[in-house]
Amino acid sequence: MHIDDIKNGIVIDHIIAGKAMEIYNMLSLGKLDCTVAIIKNAPSKKLGKKDIIKIDSDIDINLDVLGYISPNITVAFVKNGKITEKKHIGLPSTLTDIIKCKNPRCITSTEPGIHHIFKLSNGNTPVYSCIYCDTEA
C-alpha cells in the first residue's frame, strides 16, 4: 500500500488484525465526510497480518483511543503527500472518557458531569482500572 494517494491526512498503521473497525467506531470515523479507507489483514513482517486505516483529512484524533485498542500502533501524519510526522503509540497511562466503568456500585453510574477515568494498572499489560472504584475494565 502507498500513502501517496493521501494528500493531507492520517495513516494509522500496524493495527492488530481485526481491530480496525473498533477504532473506526470509537473515533466516530463514520461521521466524517472525507474518504476513509479500511484495509484489513494486510501482510505485515512484524505482526503477520495487520489492519490499516487511512483518513483523507487532517483531523484531530484521540491517540489514547488508538493505544488502548491496539498498542504499538503507528500514526503517520501526511501533508502535501509526504509524511511529516510519525508517532509510535504505546499504552496510554490514563484513559479519559473513552470507556465506562461496568461496576453498578461505582459512583460513575449515578453522578452526573464527572469524567470516566481509568489508569493503567501495570505498565506491562493492557489492564486498566477505574480511578473511582478500582474495577478493571
Binding site: R105, C106, I107, I114, C130, I131, Y132, C133, T135
Partner: peptide, 25 residues
C-alpha cells in the same frame, strides 16, 4: 454506598475530605 463517592467529593471540596467507607471498596 457508591464506590468512589469520597474521591469525587475530594475533587469538588474546598476542605479536606476523609473517606469513612465507600460501598465495598
Amino acid at each position: 454506598f457508591k464506590e468512589g463517592a469520597p474521591l469525587v467529593a475530594s475533587m469538588k471540596s474546598d476542605v479536606p475530605v476523609i473517606n469513612a467507607g465507600d460501598g465495598g471498596h
